[in-house]
Design a protein around this nucleic acid. Sequence first.
DNA 1: CGGCAATTTGAACATTTTCAATACGGGTGG
DNA 2: CCACCCGTATTGAAAATGTTCAAATTGCCG
Lengths: 217, 217
Amino acid sequence: MQLTNVLECSECVVGKVTGAVAGRCHFATRQVARDEIIFEQGQPADAIWVIKDGTVLLSRASSVDGTSVRAHAIRKPGDLIGLEGLIRPTYADQARAITPLTLCGARREHIDRWLGPPGTPARAVLEQTVRMMSGDPPRAAGSDGSAVRRLARWLVAESEQGRAPAIPRQVLADLLGMVPETLSRSLAELARSGAVNATRRHIVIASDAALRVAAGL
Amino acid sequence: MQLTNVLECSECVVGKVTGAVAGRCHFATRQVARDEIIFEQGQPADAIWVIKDGTVLLSRASSVDGTSVRAHAIRKPGDLIGLEGLIRPTYADQARAITPLTLCGARREHIDRWLGPPGTPARAVLEQTVRMMSGDPPRAAGSDGSAVRRLARWLVAESEQGRAPAIPRQVLADLLGMVPETLSRSLAELARSGAVNATRRHIVIASDAALRVAAGL
DNA sequence: CGGCAATTTGAACATTTTCAATACGGGTGG
DNA sequence: CCACCCGTATTGAAAATGTTCAAATTGCCG
């Protein structure tokens, strides 16, 4: 996304807007060593950062069980991290430096003021966008557990009032990182164990408990 | 992300900001039938929509080869689709209705005006965020092709000047949806075929051609 | 220069994919 | 209103692929 690896203030979102000349932007610069944690998932989201130099790794513990954390994105110079602070009290990801880093950041209140009054169109759209982003679960893959387990987790996470969103099998398979045949088999398995009740179009949850067992929770 | 399935104007990003009472927002409402395509990947991104009711599926053809499209996200009432129009001339995804839909939308120029002057902080941050979002490749999964192929594709997509980002194997494995052992083997395979040259910390591309062959391009 | 943790390798095993055939269900037209 | 038809979903069996677990290696840091 960025041609050079180091971001000048004149190329930075913040720098550009404030018309800053090199190094004069009002955000605070901070150096971070490799492997250092910038923030933890669940911590109060009290700062937002721009990456000037280096690479950041975002990881998230699966929202349902607290265990296995999985890397889901890398962020590079120019990118913003910690934006979820705009819409929720805590960080949605863990951010870790996988190279030495230069960051520029500010506390949430500061950003809040800087962004201008809430209720302006740009700000409202920004917030909605961040909400959308941090709500997207990373696409599942084989190493996330067996097909049955992934399906069960998805059902736990996405179902409302005992019914899963009506999504064609082909599409759901894609979202779960498997082929339709495997999805079909997994669903049959869950039905066999009494966790769900599936027709061609709808999936209803028969036993929340059984489903959670299948999900490994 | 939304408790009810139908979004009132009073709950909508646009509605809220404009203080609209029911149905009075200046965006145009549109009904969409199930399976209808709202926009195609690559088309001029000339409109942005808010989902009022229903579910939208976003799919993307892998950026490297034009073939296999994969579903990568679903969007629900309250979400915005087509935001990439703010930062690039064409849509980054295909959007398809997987239920009957009610949308509210406006042309890009309109949104542009509505969002206020470019160069305001909120707007700049919004644009940067959208840029980040549409740049994120969906996490790979087993059904996307063999491990070697997925690795090769990632290398093609992420390398700059013949070198891949310096990422620990463990992390890269996660991003590619495989376990470290499999990554190791895949990398060895690519090295054997002369496509890359790997040390523990860096991966350099030895032959762009060979790599593309391994990627199936 | 030595120790250690990350990585690589090996072999057996489990799972998923594949390919092909069948069943099912919804929509359509009579 | 019912029967037929088509496309989607399911099932089966074999083969390919990835995972697991354990052991050996290697490169990097102090």
